[in-house]
Each structure stands twice: as C-alpha cells, then as structure tokens.
Computed example of a mutant assay.
Amino acid sequence: MFEGSLVALVTPFDSRNRVDYGAVERLVEFHVAAGSNGLVVAGTTGESATLLKGEHAELIKNVVDMVAGRMPVIAGTGSNSTSQTIDLSLEVAECGIDAYLMVAPYYNKPVQEGIYQHFVTIAEQVDKPIMLYNVPGRTVTDILPETVARLAAHPKIFGIKEATGSVQRLKDIKALVPDSFRLFSGDDFTVCDFIEVGGHGVVTVSGNLAPAALATLCRLASNGELEAARALDATLQPLNTALFVESNPIPVKWALAEMGLIEAHIRLPLTPFSERYHEQMINAMNTAGIALKAAS
C-alpha cells in the first residue's frame, strides 16, 4: 500500500487564522488528479506544532472524507509525550486513516531505550500501522539504526521516514531490518539515490508543488530507469533548494499561493516568506515546469 511519493500536505489557513477547508479540498483534488501516491496530514509541513488538538483531529478526519479512498492517508499524530500521542492517535483511529506518522520525541532528549519504549508503548495501544519519523535536525533526538531494527520487529511498526539526508544511514538501516520494512526518504534532495539503494519512496515537501513529477520520479527510480529519473530530478533540484531557504513550510505555502491553490497565511512563530527569496522561488518553479496563477 505504501510506496512512491507521499506528499507532506500543507495546512492552509484563512485570514482569520482558521483552517481553510475549501483550500484543503482544492489540494486534495490537485493531488488525486496528479497521481500522488498518498498524503501525510498534520506533519511538520502541515504545521502540526501549532494545531490545537481539536483542529488537528478535525483536519485529519476531513481529509480522509475528501480523499474518499482514492489514495492512502497517513495521519501525523506524534509528539514528545507518549500519553498525548496515544490520546490523539485514538481520537482519529476510527475515521478511516491508513496509518500513523510518529516523530521521534523532541525536546525531552530520551536515550535510545526511551525512544524504543515510547514507540512500543504507543504501538501496543493503537490498531493502525505506524511509520516512524526520524528528523534529528528538528528533534535533536536520533533514532539510531539499531533502535530502528528493534522497533521493526513489532508487528504494528511498518516503516520509517528517514530525514537525515544520509544515504549511508539508509544502507545501515536496511542491513538490519526485514525486507518487508518500508523505507521512505524525508529529504527531497536525495530521492533518486535513496530509492536506488533500496528505499521505497519519499515523504515529500516538493510534491506539494510538483506532485506529478515526484510521483513519476519515484516510479522511474523504482523501475531502475535511472537515467530518466536523474534527468527529471535535475529539473527539481532548484525547487528543493528554494523550499528550504527558510524554515519549512514558509516557502512552500508562499509558492502554493502563487499557484492560486491557497492563501499564503502561516501561523506564528513562523513568519511570511522573505521577499528577497521570491525571485529564486519563481525561477525554481519555472525550471520545474510549475504553472503560476495568471496575473489579475
């Protein structure tokens, strides 16, 4: 079920700082039409850190209803609190999600045994499969390969979003886990290399803007058509760079607004995209063949 380009969906807000469900539906239909392989809702790119619990659960439930079974939906429910993660996960368990994405506990700085116990305790309480999410650049915590291997033995834990950007890390994990364990890049820069050495796809930020290209890139790389995959990847690398000149999801929300899909509202403590990067982003979008909205 889980492979290819899983888009880390943004959460659009309106001018009153509420979730804009009209824009959410436009995004869902955009990804269905473009052939994205799945959506990850309320993750980092979805500004989960600033969603209230009620908003968080409502967003997930609404996206599931909008998707209506046309692609898998993975719900981001992880936090640095084991009990709060269980609570939110159970809140959305019956709405039709296909899996959970759960980030490594942040701020607390648990040791590897604490990380292991955190995820196993959660897995014992939920019925849906869990994708681990390792992003040390944000959490400080790092789920080491040996801990991933221990967690992979649990029947509820099916894969990992590995966002270190290290292909060697993928190789280290792959050597320790069963072949059935699903390996997803959390780094758009290295998708081709990641899939070439055994990854199954990407949880992508760039796919918000270029969903068809990311789905095609994953398919080509998975099929061993590496020359074509690398040629396509080259058109996306300037976009990957532009999307991280400021903290994600600041740049991607601005770019989606330039496409006419959402309004460019973002919640504090994140701030609007700096004007000095606008030209770089527009140029990158043009290189990737992304259509901008017509000037009014």
Rank of each mutant, 00 (worst) to 15 (best):
L239F: 05
T287K: 13
A33D: 11
V92K: 07
R70F: 06
C95N: 02
A212L: 12
A23E: 06
N286L: 13
V41P: 09
Q125R: 13
G201I: 10
T287A: 12
A257S: 07
C218V: 08
D172Y: 01
A264M: 03
S48M: 12
Y100Q: 07
A213M: 09
A229C: 01
G96D: 05
Q280T: 04
F119H: 02
D20N: 13
G96K: 09
T141H: 05
L176Q: 10
L270R: 11
G199I: 10
T287N: 13
M66W: 09
R276G: 01
E162T: 04
L239S: 04
M259T: 03
I262Q: 03
K171T: 13
A229H: 03
G199V: 10
V111P: 07
P178D: 10
N80D: 15
F181W: 02
R182W: 12
V63H: 12
A210P: 09
K161R: 04
V202A: 14
V252N: 08
L239D: 00
S222C: 12
L292F: 00
I262W: 00
L209E: 05
L214D: 11
L261E: 08
F2S: 04
A99Q: 02
L88D: 00
E25D: 11
A294W: 07
F181S: 08
A295I: 10
V245D: 06
S296P: 15
H56N: 00
T85I: 02
C192Q: 04
I130E: 01
K53I: 12
V67M: 02
I173C: 00
P110R: 01
I130C: 00
L232A: 08
A175V: 13
S36W: 07
Q237R: 14
T44Q: 07
A75W: 05
H265T: 07
S81F: 11
M131I: 14
L226P: 04
A34S: 14
G4R: 06
V19W: 08
E146D: 08
Q125H: 14
T241I: 14
R219A: 08
L59K: 05
S5Y: 03
E3V: 11
L101W: 08
L236C: 10
A257W: 02
I282H: 13
V120P: 09
V203Q: 06
R182S: 12
G198I: 02
M102V: 11
A295E: 08
L27V: 04
I86R: 01
G46R: 07
V73R: 00
V203S: 00
G69M: 08
L217S: 06
A221G: 09
S247Q: 12
T190D: 14
S247R: 02
E58T: 15
